[in-house]
Simulated assay, not measured.
Amino acid sequence: MAMSGGSDDGAPMIDMNMTPLIDVLLVLLIMFIITIPVATHAVNIDLPQPNPTPPEVIVEPDKNKLIVTQTDEILWNGNPINEGQLVTLLQQTLTITPEPELQFEPEALASYESSARVLNIIKASGVTAFGFVGNERYRTFGSIQ
């Protein structure tokens, strides 16, 4: 029985030596990875421009409180409303000078979907006096009550 591991008759080797090819490909791969720019993730937020001259008389604007409950109910200053009424109320607040501050306070167990939907309505309305309130209650993890 003859073994086919090598050629004893002096014939040239038919198989290509793959080692140099693999070495070149690995070097090219490493160079390609090094030259790729670092991906940066950015969240673009439109911030209001500062007013260089503050008004002489500071008027405290009204504050409207918007709450999303754990039962997906929207409360405007304690009164239940639907999304259509929310759009109307936000449009009305934009006509008031100075614009009333909108305080958004979702309850601890309110659904993320409802809160995100309300935030999208607020963003689409163009409200500029907006703030999150009540976050200090959740300062430590696991303190949701």
Results as ranks from 00 to 15, higher is better:
residue 54 P to R: 09
residue 55 P to F: 04
residue 34 I to W: 07
residue 33 I to T: 05
residue 38 V to F: 13
residue 3 M to Q: 06
residue 49 Q to I: 07
residue 100 P to M: 11
residue 37 P to G: 02
residue 15 D to N: 06
residue 109 L to P: 01
residue 37 P to N: 09
residue 111 S to A: 07
residue 125 S to Q: 00
residue 25 L to A: 09
residue 81 I to H: 02
residue 135 N to S: 10
residue 55 P to Y: 08
residue 40 T to M: 07
residue 42 A to L: 06
residue 139 R to W: 14
residue 29 L to I: 11
residue 113 E to P: 00
residue 13 M to G: 09
residue 63 K to Q: 08
residue 61 P to Q: 06
residue 5 G to Y: 07
residue 50 P to I: 09
residue 61 P to T: 11
residue 34 I to S: 03
residue 57 V to R: 07
residue 85 Q to E: 14
residue 133 V to S: 03
residue 50 P to S: 14
residue 93 T to E: 04
residue 68 V to G: 00
residue 64 N to T: 13
residue 130 F to L: 12
residue 130 F to H: 02
residue 97 T to M: 08
residue 63 K to Y: 05
residue 57 V to D: 12
residue 25 L to S: 08
residue 50 P to D: 12
residue 59 V to E: 06
residue 68 V to D: 00
residue 21 L to T: 15
residue 69 T to R: 06
residue 49 Q to A: 14
residue 32 F to P: 03
residue 31 M to L: 14
residue 7 S to V: 05
residue 139 R to I: 14
residue 128 T to P: 01
residue 62 D to V: 03
residue 129 A to F: 00
residue 15 D to V: 14
residue 19 T to P: 00
residue 59 V to T: 13
residue 24 V to I: 12
residue 65 K to T: 13
residue 50 P to N: 08
residue 74 I to A: 00
residue 2 A to G: 09
residue 106 P to M: 11
residue 86 L to F: 05
residue 60 E to T: 11
residue 77 N to Y: 03
residue 78 G to R: 00
residue 15 D to L: 14
residue 14 I to G: 05
residue 90 L to F: 12
residue 21 L to F: 15
residue 11 A to G: 14
residue 54 P to Q: 08
residue 83 E to F: 07
residue 17 N to G: 02
residue 123 K to I: 04
residue 92 Q to R: 13
residue 98 P to T: 07
residue 14 I to R: 13
residue 20 P to S: 15
residue 65 K to H: 15
residue 55 P to Q: 11
residue 54 P to I: 00
residue 102 L to I: 15
residue 29 L to Q: 10
residue 109 L to N: 12
residue 116 A to T: 03
residue 26 L to Y: 13
residue 110 A to G: 01
residue 66 L to M: 01
residue 116 A to W: 06
residue 77 N to M: 03
residue 64 N to H: 14
residue 63 K to D: 03
residue 43 V to S: 09
residue 11 A to Y: 09
residue 15 D to A: 13
residue 6 G to F: 11
residue 127 V to M: 00
residue 40 T to N: 09
residue 68 V to Q: 01
residue 13 M to I: 13
residue 54 P to F: 02
residue 89 L to C: 02
residue 5 G to D: 09
residue 105 E to F: 10
residue 30 I to E: 14
residue 6 G to I: 05
residue 63 K to A: 14
residue 86 L to R: 03
residue 11 A to F: 10
residue 11 A to E: 12
residue 18 M to V: 15
residue 56 E to H: 04
residue 34 I to L: 13
residue 41 H to L: 15
residue 123 K to A: 15
residue 140 T to I: 10
residue 50 P to K: 03
residue 48 P to N: 07
residue 17 N to K: 10
residue 18 M to H: 08
residue 114 S to R: 12
residue 18 M to E: 05
residue 95 T to K: 15
residue 39 A to T: 07
residue 136 E to R: 00
residue 9 D to C: 05
residue 50 P to Y: 07
residue 83 E to V: 09
residue 28 L to M: 10
residue 109 L to M: 06
residue 15 D to Y: 10
residue 137 R to D: 10
residue 116 A to D: 06
residue 59 V to W: 01
residue 51 N to V: 10
residue 125 S to F: 02
residue 25 L to C: 06
residue 96 I to A: 04
residue 10 G to C: 12
